[in-house]
Nucleic acid binder design. Sequence first.
DNA 1: CTAGGGTTAG
Length: 731
Amino acid sequence: MRSVVLKNPRISALSSYRCCGDFSSVRRPFSSSSPSTPIDTLNTNLRPFPEYTPKKLSITDAELVHNLTTALKQRRPHSLDRTLIPFADRLRSDHLVWALFQLRSHPAIALSFVRWFRGKTRFVVPAEAQAIAAHLSLVSGRVGAARQLLRQGIASYRNFIEQVIYTYRHWSSDPEVFDILFRAMVEFRRLEEAHSLFFHLTTFGVVISVDSCNAYLSHLPVDAALNVFVEFPLSGVRWNTNSYNIVICGLCRAGKLVEACEFLLKMNSEGTVLPDVITYSTIIHGYCRSGELQRAYDLFQEMRSRGLKPNEFTFNSIMALQCKKGMAVEAERLLLVMENEGVVPDSAVYTTLISGYSNIGSLSAVHRLVDEMKDKGLVPDAGTYTTLISSLCRCGRIIDADLLFQEMLRKGLSADQVTYTVLIDGYAKDGRMQEAFRLHEEMLQAGLMPNIVTYTALSDGLCKQGELEAANELLHEICQKGLQLNVCTYNSLINGLCKSGNIEQAMKTLEEMEAAGLNPDAYTYTTLMDAYCKIGELTRAHGLLREMLDKCIQPSIVTFNVLMNGFCAAGKLEDGQKLLEWMLGKNIMPNAATYNSLLKNYSMEKNMKVVTEIYRGMHSRGILPDESTYNILITGHCKARNMKEACYFHKEMIGKGFRMSATSYNALIEGLYRKKRFMEAKQLFQEMQDVGHVANKNIYNLFIDLNYNEGNIERTLELCDEAIEKCLIGS
DNA sequence: CTAGGGTTAG
C-alpha cells in the first residue's frame, strides 16, 4: 500500500512540470512542510490517480491516426481543412483521443485539431478528449484556454469530472487543473457538486486553494458556509482573512451580529489570521443597518485602537445610518472628519449625503452637494442619479425627474431595477398609473426583473387612485409568479383600504399578514391608528397604541404625529400641545410634521399669536420648517393680514427651493391685492399659472375687476373666459 | 470571491 503511494506518478509529474504552473495555489495536505507529521502513516489515506488505459485501436485505425498526425505536424500554412481532406471520410470521433496521444509534444497543433473537430457536425468530441485538451492547455501555459475547456466540459458532459481525474495522471502537470475545475463548478452554481469534488480530490491528496475555497464559501447560504468553515480545515485548507470576512459578511446579512462579533473575537484572540479594515467595516455596517449607532461607534474606536484606519466604506455606513435617522447634518459633519483624516470621499459617500438631505426635504443642500462633488472631480454615477430622480419625485417634480432620467441615459449610464422602480413610484405617486405601467413594460423589455419593491410601488399607486380591486389583482398575480409580499406591501394595502373607508377590511388584512408569517410593524399600527383618528375614534386609536406597545413595537415619530393630528382635528388643541410637551419631556424629538398639525389648526382659528409662539419653539429646537410649514405660515399670516410676515416666509421658502401650494398663492395674491400691491400680485398670479396651479374664483374676480378698472377690456374678457373654463366648469 | 451609497408602506 505504502509503496503504491510513493510510486504515485503524480509526484514525478509535479516535479517534472514545475515550470508550467503555480503550485502555491494548490497544495497537498500533510506535505513535507509539516515535518512532525509522519508521511507514510497519513499517506495510507491517499490513493493514486487512476492509471490511463486507452482503448486499443485496430491496425488500420492506428495507421490512419499515425498518417493524420504526421500530416498535421508537417502542415504548412494552409488550412486544417485542406490537410485533413484525405482523412475526413474515414475519421471517427474515437480517433481523436489517439491523435492527441501522437500530438502530445505539439500542444498548439493538438488544440487546433480539437477545435477543428468540434466545428464538424458529424463528430463529437468525447469527454475524455475534452479533458485531455484541458490538461494539454494548462501544461503548455494556456491557462485561459484550459479554463474555457473545463467550463465547456462541465457544461456539456455528465461524467466530465471523472474524465479529468482519469486522464490526469497521464496528461497533467498540474493540480491547478482541479482548482480551475472547482471554481468553474462554483461559477455555474453547482455547489453540491463542488462540495463532493472537494472531498473526492482530498482522497487523492489534492487540496483546493484557499482562494477557490473562498469563492465557494461566498456562494453558500450562511449556515452551509459555517459548516464548510469547520469542515474544510480538517482536510488541510487554511483559511485567510478573506475567508473570515466572507463568513462574517454572511452572518451580518442574516442579522446574526452577535455571532459575527464572535468570529472577530476569535480572530483577535487567536492571532493567526488577523481582522482587517474589511472585517471591521462589515460588522460596523451590520450594526448600522440594524440601527445600532452606538455599537457601530464602539467598533469604530476598537478598529482604530488596533491600528486599522477606517476608510470611505466605514465612514459611509455610519453616515448612511445617520441619514436614515434624518441626521443629514451630522452625517455631513462626519464627512469633514473623514476628509481631515485624509480619507477621500467618493461618489457613494456623496450619494448617501444627498439622499439624507433629500429625506429631510432640503433640496438646496442637495444642489450644494451635487455641485461640491462635481467640483471635486467626482462624476455622478447611476446611483447618484437614482437618488436625485427619487428626490425630485418625492417633491412631486415628476417631469424634472423624467428629464433627469433621460439625461442619465444620454450620459451612457444604464438604468437598473432601482432606477426604474424610483420612476415608477414617482408616476404612481403622481396618480399617473398608465405611465407607471408603461415604465414597467419598458423595464421588462430592457431585461430587468421588477421586484417586490417595484410591485409595491405600483400597488400603492393603484390604492391611492382608489383602485383597490386592481391592486388586489396585481398582488395575486405576482404571488403566483413566486414573489413574496413583504411588510411594506401589506402596509400599503392596509393603508389603501383605510383611505377608502374600509377599516374593517384593513383589520382583516392585518390578520392575513400575520397568518402569512409577517409581523406588523410601526407602519402597520400607525396606519390603522390614523384611520381611527380620522373618523374621530380616538379611543380605538389609543387601543391600537396599547397593542403595539404590548408587542414591544417602538412607535415612531409618525405614530405620535398621527395622534397629534387626531387631537388637533378633533379640536383638542390643548391636548395636542400637551402631547408635544410630553414628547419633549421624553426626549422624543418632534419633527416639522408634528408642529405642522398644531400650526395649521391654530392658524385656522386665526390665532396667529399662538402660531408664532409655537413656530418660535420649533425654531429654537433646531427643527427645520418644511414646505408645508411655510405654506401654513404664509396662508395663516395672509388670512390675518400680516403681509409683512407672509412675505418674509415666502422669500425664505423660495430661498430653500420649496414651492408654494395653490392655497398659498391664492392667499398671498389676495393679501397683496388688498394692500394694493398690484404689481406683485400680478406677478404671482402669472407665476402660479406658469407652475401649473389654478387660481380660485375669488382671485379671478379680483383681476377681472382690476383690468376692467384699468380699462384693459381685452385682458378682462380673457380672464373671464379662463375663469369660466377653470373655475366654474366641473365645480 | 469578502466591506459602503440609490427603491416600496404610515
